[in-house]
Amino acid sequence: MENGIRGYHPYVVFFYYICTGFLVMYFKHPLFLATALIILICVNISHDRGKSLRKWMIPLMVMSLFFMVLNPFLVSRGTNILFYFRGKQVTLEATMYGVVMAIALVSVIVMFVSFNILLNGNKFLYIFSKVLPRTAFLLMLAIRFVPLLKSRFDEIRAVQRVRGTTMTVGTLRQRARNGMYMIQVLLTWSLEEAIQTADSMKARGYGIGKKTSYIPYRMEKRDWGWLATLLVLFSVCIWGGMLGYGKIVIYPELGTLHLYVLDWILFVCMTIILAFPLIVEGRERLRWKY
């Protein structure tokens, strides 16, 4: 059994991501989004000290800069004009929209990075195997083949290098052609080998009847507890959002950023939902210390 958030049932974790993804795209208030982003980054750091997130740093920076800088210059909607640039108006609204959009997008991607860590291959499939068993199985097989194909490709590359077929010298055309030649070898070879995989499946009874599942996960009391908590908080957020809280009006004129009481309530609910992995990990750490 794994520790911390990884020890929770995949359904619960999956539901956490649904809520998170939904809320991040749902609320538009800068405070909400900025908080969400900070929490999600912390969540990532709690998984692996931010190792996987670091690889995304540069694309994320570029993407957010793209929205923040480009949006005001490209879009001239809005009422409050900040200044003119080459005869076009740069508005407060467009700037604000750029910021909101950038944070929302970055948050979603940061969430997916964490998703990739927590719900890796098998857990992901476990979730879907109930609904789409054969598709899930197909996907799993394909994922299982990837490392195998990569190592086969390395072998092919070595052999073909000695034959003078490489992707490192020549014009773009030649290199692309050589690359595809090698993939062609990979195709011919792998198709042939795949028959054995199919035979081995058949030999162990694939497709003869109803499958059961060796369930490595069990919904325990704490799983149900958290599921209920998330569900309640999530409903509150949706309900509040439908009344217009947690959002701001941007176009045609930027509305107020002021937070009302209900906004604060939603804010707390959202924070608790998003911080679910942090709470779990934090509690576990405290238990180890004391």
Partner: peptide, 9 residues
């Protein structure tokens, strides 16, 4: 080639 799944278990 005989291995089907992505995890030993």
């Amino acid at each position: 080639n005989q291995i089907v799944m992505d995890e030993v278990m």
